[in-house]
């Protein structure tokens, strides 16, 4: 175990100890304190449930300040590049949702004030589907969407 890791582990242990006390005292709700992997959102079967799992609301307003870059036609649904860039201020998180996937939520990026407006990854798209980027900014949800046509599916190989 490297020094850095030991430090991280120590930090994590101390932090969770303090949080445990706070939660035990009923001061704070766990979801707010420690951003843990949002299982409910990732297991959700619909876009609406996935968003509610992440933000407790699915009311996202379409915004021209979000650019979602993805191919019109994906030859291989197993590897579809998706890039989200936004000029919105105070971006807290960005979610990538694929409407027709069995479990639509693909990724949820938790950001800080040092985020410079762009994030990208590659996702699986099972069949032709709407791909959505949801941006949480200033306590509100904004979205952008794009239709991606898939010629070979991303699931089932």
């Amino acid at each position: 175990m490297s020094d850095v890791k030991r430090r991280l582990l120590l930090k994590a242990t101390l932090a969770s100890g303090a949080i445990g006390v706070a939660v035990g005292a009923g001061l704070l709700r766990p979801r707010v304190v420690l951003a843990a992997w949002p299982e409910q959102a990732f297991q959700a079967k619909s876009v609406s449930d996935a968003l509610k799992g992440l933000y407790e609301s699915d009311a996202a307003v379409e915004s021209a300040d979000i650019k979602l870059k993805a191919p019109d036609i994906a030859e291989n649904g197993a590897v579809v590049p998706v890039e989200v860039s936004t000029s919105l201020d105070n971006v807290k998180s960005i979610g990538i949702v694929i409407e027709k996937n069995g479990r639509p939520l693909a990724a949820d990026f938790q950001l800080t004030d040092r985020f410079a407006g762009k994030v990208s990854t590659r996702v699986k798209v099972a069949e032709s589907s709407k791909v959505m980027a949801v941006v949480e900014s200033g306590g509100k949800l904004y979205s952008a969407a794009k239709e991606v046509k898939v010629t070979i599916g991303g699931c089932g190989g």
């Binding site: 951003a35 992997w37 949002p38 990732f42 197993a78 590897v79 579809v80 694929i98 996937n101 479990r103 639509p104 939520l105 693909a106 990724a107 949820d108 990026f109 938790q110 990854t121 590659r122 996702v123 699986k124 991303g154």
Partner: peptide, 8 residues
């Protein structure tokens, strides 16, 4: 980043 199995 929190990811699900839909990431490639």
């Amino acid at each position: 980043a929190f990811w699900g199995p839909s990431v490639s």
